[in-house]
Design a protein around this nucleic acid. Sequence first.
DNA 1: ACCTGAACACCGTTCAAGT
DNA 2: ACCTGAACACCGTTCAAGT
Lengths: 201, 201
Amino acid sequence: MASAAATRPRREPLTQDRIAKTSLELIDDIGLEEFSTRRLGAALGCEAMAIYNHFASKDALLDAVVDKLIKDVSVPPMGEGWQSRVRGFARSYRALAHAHPKAFPLLATRRFRTRARNLVDQIISALLEEGFEARSAASLFRILANYCNGAILDELSGTFPGATEDHPSIKRVQAFLSPEHYDEIFDRGLSLIIDGFESKS
Amino acid sequence: MASAAATRPRREPLTQDRIAKTSLELIDDIGLEEFSTRRLGAALGCEAMAIYNHFASKDALLDAVVDKLIKDVSVPPMGEGWQSRVRGFARSYRALAHAHPKAFPLLATRRFRTRARNLVDQIISALLEEGFEARSAASLFRILANYCNGAILDELSGTFPGATEDHPSIKRVQAFLSPEHYDEIFDRGLSLIIDGFESKS
DNA sequence: ACCTGAACACCGTTCAAGT
DNA sequence: ACCTGAACACCGTTCAAGT
């Protein structure tokens, strides 16, 4: 009578979705460097090779992880002006990075395959909708995205190591380079970009 | 009589400098992904393990490569105004990235160990020298560096894949996202930052 | 159809042994 | 002092074999 339960494997069946979900959790936990198909297999309760029945390669799997990651980022709807939509997007993108610091670098690497492209389309669509010409929309998108990625990767890569006597100028400004100023500096850079486009486009 | 020449190894002796130099050449050639101690050994004419007599780890070796890479970047001297010094630095940093596209990501990763910190000190020193307060200097440095790193990493990571019908807005602005506009867009972002600090600091 | 075991061609790194 | 050979504990991936 216990045979049916005993016969089937003790774990839920493998699916693309479950594998991607577990991958993201594992990356959040141990980091990209340590993440391997063998450790993923251990986390899933199967052999590493079983994964290749659901994904063509580790690379394809990581694309699926990016999809999971980006799912919740979106561009605010029309109504409050383009500045606040741009700001809203930038902040939610940065919030995602802080929620998944170890997985975020994946996004910077493979930003245009996968669902990330839908997000790009959303942002550009919003800019066009707000009246930007194609040329300005492209410039603003690039400058904004590049600034966000650079700032976020920097914030994630650890705090500035203490300055020594060899670096007197770093020492003088060091207090303002610490994490407690990250929010303020990120917003200031964002404002610079937004204000610059406001007066010139 | 040929014994002295025949006895010593046919290659120049290994030194930290020669290993780092060959590493950079090899990375420029085959990329970071393919770069391994074994392939480096082959390029040097020795076994991979010989490298560990000169560097404690591959990681330490990569730090030395970063030092080699950054050697030629510097901040223009005083005299032409801070805007043009900042611009000059940003352009030479970007030029380095285009000269070593496959090695550049190393810099973004390990920017503050190694000699890269001297460069940071130079920039901040220039800003202080030009009259910025510590707080403004720190903000401007961060915003500038983050923008440069984001923009450069983006430029290096390949062109935007062609838009499909699923991405109508990307399609509309696509022409302006191509590499022939990279220079112009990079400079525009740079100006945004510089002008923003000009009017407010 | 899905999973496993064994194997292949790689890694970075250690260490005893050679010169 | 510097280099090598063999080995260890890992990788991603393939493939024949199992159910």
